[in-house]
Nucleic acid binder design. Structure first.
Length: 428
RNA sequence: GGAGAGGUGGCCGAGCGGUCGAAGGCAGCCGCCUGCUAAGCGGUUGUGGGGGUAAUACUCCACCCAGGGUUCGAAUCCCUGCCUCUCCGCCA
């Protein structure tokens, strides 16, 4: 959420940002609403002030009531007067409330302003490659897709998962399950060693949490929802972990705060029916280890570089070639100011695929979730900046390992760093 | 699932329907005093919004879990929800 005052004072900039994001929100209409909101608030405040004064007078008179010469009519007059005020106040309050609701319905769906370093562009073709690491392996045989390899080794069962749940689910079996668990532990240990505190949060959350990080109200169709009682399945650990500090005022010396969390993630994948129908790339349920930071505003862009480097290091440790893409204005997510996608090389698809997305949200989520901090020597509070990134998506990492480490005989070599976690060097 | 208790400021804790943004204590900050330390004395310390200012000052409104209601007036009364705690039952 943007600060309405910021919108008021930087209207041109906001409009330009929205245009670059292919958004069509009417800012002028919003500002008109905001104007009338302020007028109504003044009106209501004024009425309340008068009411409070008269009510106090009535109180004083009532105390004098004990005396015989007390004038009853005065109380009656005052009461009549205050009743008139109350009526006008009610009207003003109702109007105010309705205007506030209208304003909220708009501000909640205004996307974040892209950072100045974000390239302007209409879609993903305008994203900019920042760097590349590792050389895609040269195969002396035709490399296979991970689902074919996994099926042959009987380590992933998509068919029976479909029977149990439906399309876009998988059963990990034997060393497949073991690999999934090894990656989870490896990633959590890796992140822990880099200063992230491990947390294991709820994966069902309430509406407020989903609103705080920006999934709601705009992206309800992406979420699995439990109707009664109302809960949402998290699409990413970003939601519960960022909301850990919702509504809090942190002390300056508590910052920065780094968390890492493993959670399953649940996504409807509505509107992607034809895409990635086979394999682990696009599942309704997948595992992910997430990195989340709460930082002071002046550090957030350095922190974004650091967070991205932390995620990249996991791929380096695993020996998986990747590249880092800077997303353009047309491709960046709703809540983010700046995002790097890390894409891993998949030999079976002979292309890079997103495996991590690292974003700085600046104060966008903090304002929604009311996450503030207080500087030691200053009065008042400020919003923190929040960041997060996958470190990493486990299902896609499994796919990448299977495809990059496949051997001619159909076996899979296990990356060195995972061998103690796996208790095996090879899957065959 | 049944029965009960409770949610007040950074923390503890009081609060009769009006004089309560809220006693008192602790902690913090600023002074004073005491040859050190401890104690003592005085003052001060919340959040959001509006107006105002170059910025302060100043001023108005709201906030005692949340949302409704009663009332001239609600932290205080009523209703609903959420959360916490105790006991019983049930399940792990």
């Amino acid at each position: 959420m943007l600060d309405i005052r910021f919108i008021r004072e930087n209207t041109a900039l906001v409009k330009e940002a929205l245009q670059n994001r292919n958004s069509t929100i009417d800012i002028d209409a919003l500002l008109q609403l905001e104007n009338s909101r302020r007028g109504l608030q003044q009106q209501a405040d004024e009425l309340r002030s008068r009411r409070n004064i008269i009510s106090e007078e009535i109180g004083m008179m009532k105390r004098l009531q004990l005396k015989p010469d007390y004038n009853t009519d005065m109380v009656k007059d005052k009461t009549a007067e205050v009743n008139e005020i109350a009526e006008a106040l009610k009207e003003a309050e109702d109007k105010l409330k309705s205007v506030e609701e209208k304003i909220a319905s708009v501000t909640m769906i205004i996307p974040n302003i892209p950072h100045a370093t974000v390239p302007v562009g209409k879609d993903e073709t305008c994203n900019v490659e920042m760097r590349k690491w590792g050389e895609p392996r040269l195969f002396d045989f035709q490399p296979l897709n991970h689902w074919d390899i996994a099926r042959a080794l009987d380590i992933i069962d998509f068919d029976r998962a479909a029977k149990i749940a439906g399309a876009r689910f998988a059963i990990m079996k034997g060393y497949g399950a073991r690999l999934e668990r090894a990656l989870m532990n490896f990633m959590l240990d890796h992140n822990g060693a880099r200063g992230y505190k491990e947390v294991l949060p709820p994966i069902l959350v309430n509406r407020e949490s989903m609103t705080g990080t920006g999934q709601l109200p705009k992206f309800a169709e992406e979420l699995f929802r439990i109707a009664d009682p109302e809960f949402y399945l998290v699409p990413t650990a970003e939601v519960p972990v960022t909301n850990i500090h919702a509504g809090e005022i942190l002390k300056e010396d508590e910052l920065p705060i780094y968390y890492t969390a493993y959670t399953p993630c649940f996504r409807r994948e509505a509107g992607s029916y034809g895409k990635d129908t086979r394999g682990l790339i696009r599942q309704h349920q997948f595992n992910k280890v997430e990195l989340v930071k709460f930082v002071k505003p002046e550090h957030s862009y350095d922190e974004l570089e650091g967070l991205t480097a932390d995620a990249e290091d996991i791929l380096r440790q695993l020996g998986l070639p990747y590249r880092v893409m800077l997303l353009c204005t047309g491709d960046i997510g709703f809540s983010a100011s700046k995002t790097y996608d890390i894409e891993v090389w998949l030999p079976g698809q002979t292309r890079y695929r997103e495996i991590s997305s690292c974003s700085n949200f600046e104060d966008f989520q903090a304002r929604r979730a009311k996450i503030r901090f207080k500087r030691t020597d200053k009065k008042g509070t400020e919003f923190v900046h929040t960041l997060n990134g996958s470190g990493l998506a486990i299902g896609r990492t499994v796919a990448a390992i299977i495809e990059n480490y496949q051997q001619k005989d159909g076996s899979i070599t296990i990356p060195q760093v995972l061998r103690t976690y796996m208790g095996a060097d090879v899957i065959k």
